Amino acid sequence: MTEPTASEPTDDGRPAQKPVQLNDVADYEDLLEEHDLVLLEFVTSGCGICASMEPVLGAVARSAPGAVATVNAGLVPALTAEFGVQRVPTLVVLKDGEEVARLDDGFQSADTIVDLLETHAAH
């Protein structure tokens, strides 16, 4: 699994993170073991909206609770099937390994995603 890259610390002292790329089911399982709150973004190569979401997810990873990961739906079909992904981008929020929220209706703002993660982190 590709580890998040630390850069300048954030305002709360945590190192700034960027989304992790999940390349297989083992990467996904490792991520769930390490984090109780996870945002998965399912993407495909050549998806324009997915590409436009990259900087948004970077901002989310730096400011929101939990881990942020991307999954290429075409390269990890087992996860794509497990989550019943029908279109991309699909964002899935997992709390303790269980799906608690899903956004699959196109581009989402960083504020929308951060609010969603903060809501589920509080529970």
Rank of each mutant, 00 (worst) to 15 (best):
G46L: 07
V68G: 00
N23P: 00
M53T: 04
A110R: 08
A78D: 15
A69F: 04
V71K: 07
P15D: 02
C47K: 05
P19R: 02
A51L: 10
V85D: 11
V88F: 10
L40N: 03
D27W: 02
A59V: 09
S45R: 14
D30E: 14
R62W: 05
A73P: 03
V93T: 14
G46Q: 11
I49H: 15
H120T: 01
V92A: 12
R62V: 10
P9V: 07
L57G: 09
A78P: 13
S109V: 07
A59M: 09
A59F: 05
V114M: 02
R102C: 02
P65Q: 06
L94G: 14
G97T: 04
H123F: 08
R14P: 00
A121S: 12
D30P: 04
T10L: 09
Q21M: 11
A67Y: 03
A59L: 09
L57Y: 11
A122V: 08
C47H: 02
E98S: 08
T112P: 01
D111W: 12
V100H: 07
T90D: 06
T112Q: 13
G74C: 08
Q108H: 03
H120C: 02
N72V: 11
E98I: 06
I49F: 05
T44V: 09
A73D: 12
M1K: 05
K95Y: 14
V38M: 03
D27C: 10
L116M: 15
G74V: 14
T70Y: 05
T112F: 04
E98H: 11
L117F: 07
Q108C: 07
D12V: 00
Y28P: 08
P77N: 06
E82F: 10
G74R: 09
E33P: 02
H35S: 13
T2Y: 02
L32N: 10
L91P: 13
V114Q: 02
A78F: 04
A73I: 06
P19I: 09
E82A: 15
M1G: 14
V85R: 13
G58A: 13
R87G: 07
A59T: 08
P19Q: 00
I49V: 15
F42S: 00
S52Q: 12
T5H: 11
R14F: 00
R87F: 06
F42M: 06
V25Q: 10
T119L: 12
V20D: 01
E41R: 15
L31S: 13
L116Y: 08
F107Y: 14
P4T: 12
C50T: 05
L103Q: 09
G97R: 06
K95I: 11
L31R: 10
E34P: 04
E34V: 03
E82D: 15
D115T: 11
T80S: 13
V100D: 06
R14W: 00
D11Q: 03
G58N: 15
D11G: 04
P9L: 09
L79K: 12
P4R: 10
G46R: 08
N23K: 07
A81S: 13
L39V: 00
S7D: 13
P65K: 00
E54M: 08
V25R: 12
V20L: 06
A26I: 04
S7M: 11
P9Q: 10
H120N: 06
E98W: 02
V20W: 02
V92Y: 03
V60A: 03
R62N: 10
